[in-house]
């Protein structure tokens, strides 16, 4: 019965926090099912309460381990936590191994924590297609904190800033001399820096290097721009620094609310979502409509009468798009 339930029929159950309905709705969002569109629109209307926290950092830096501890800490403060954990898809088979749950045993079985693994399915930027709809679903279902664990970041993988209210960048000591956040070019996106694996002897150096870099940024700019991101040293297995990290997240949320920046961020997220959605629609429309036209164009191209540029413009015109001159 549940199996074939229409998405619209699931909306109220999602709002009521029923795990099966939430889980199914998440699958529909992930697949981009047309059938789910109006249900997702309804769900969107019921969002806006959750604080969305992005956790990013290079592969193996300790994100999942930290996410589990942070979630457990929020639970002691009686807040419900949704977690979206993203891992990459194989470019060869399209399949994936989603292993973030391995580190999340501690919060498994707690009805106040909902963990969902998602594969990137070719999406760049560290998020998966449907991630933000997934956030909506967990928000509407009453999860007060929604944590997104991105895939490991590189220079081009900073979509999280336009998805989360608070971005935590995780740096682990001993993964090379440089601070990974600098190397990856993501120093600037952090609202909070977490230095993980605080039990390692090099951790203190990573903390001071990071503080030095952040201070240098301020010195170069000649002023403090907005606020200086705090650096928190954590050791997840020993539960050290976790309360501090959660307090830093809450402090950032309060800062956003009191400075008026929260609305700016929300607006930036809306803008990004709209543009991304438009891109996806364009791409899909194009895939759907190019079929019949391409063979004829190829024949013409073969004669050498038209160039690929001209062919591309005709193809777009066929799809219903006018390329401007």
């Amino acid at each position: 019965m549940m199996r074939r339930a229409s998405s619209l029929d699931l909306v109220d159950a999602v709002s009521a926090g029923e795990p099966r309905a939430i889980a199914r709705m998440l699958s529909r969002a992930e697949s981009g099912a047309v059938e789910a569109r109006s249900a997702l629109d309804l769900i969107y209307q019921r969002t806006g309460r959750a604080h969305v926290v992005g956790i990013t950092g290079v592969p193996g830096s300790g994100k999942s381990t930290l996410v589990a501890k942070v979630a457990a800490q929020f639970r002691t403060r009686r807040r419900k936590v949704g977690i979206i954990a993203i891992d990459p898809s194989s470019p060869f088979s399209g399949g994936s191994i989603l292993g973030d749950r391995i580190r999340m045993g501690e919060v498994t079985g707690d009805p106040g924590v909902f963990v969902r693994s998602m594969a990137t399915r070719g999406a760049l930027g560290g998020l998966a297609r449907g991630t933000l709809e997934a956030v909506d679903i967990l928000d509407a279902a009453g999860y007060e904190v929604v944590i997104i664990e991105t895939v490991g970041v590189g220079q081009d993988e900073v979509d999280i800033v336009r998805a989360a209210h608070t971005t935590v960048v995780v740096s682990a000591p001993g993964l090379g001399d440089d601070i990974q956040a600098i190397k990856a070019g993501v120093l600037e996106i952090a609202d909070i820096h977490a230095v993980s694996k605080g039990d390692k002897p090099e951790a203190d150096k990573t903390v001071s290097d990071l503080k030095g870099m952040l201070g240098l940024g301020v010195a170069l700019a000649g002023r403090i721009v907005g606020r200086l991101a705090p650096v928190v040293k954590t050791c997840a297995p020993k539960n050290e620094g976790i309360a501090e990290l959660v307090e830093a997240i809450d402090a950032h949320r309060e800062y956003l609310a009191s400075s008026g920046e929260l609305e700016q961020r929300r607006q930036a997220i809306r803008e990004r979502r709209t543009l991304k959605a438009a891109e996806v629609i364009l791409h899909d429309e194009f895939e759907n409509h190019r079929e019949g036209r391409m063979a004829a164009l190829l024949a013409e191209l073969g004669t050498g009468r038209i160039s690929p540029q001209t062919a591309a413009r005709r193809l777009l015109a066929h799809v219903g798009m006018e390329a401007s001159e």
Binding site: S90, S93, G95, L98, R101, R103, G105, T108, S117
Partner: peptide, 16 residues
């Protein structure tokens, strides 16, 4: 299973 195109959630050892 991944190479067969599936999404595989792996939960680790010692689960109840």
């Amino acid at each position: 299973l991944r190479d067969g195109g599936m999404d595989v959630v792996y939960t680790g050892l010692h689960r109840t």
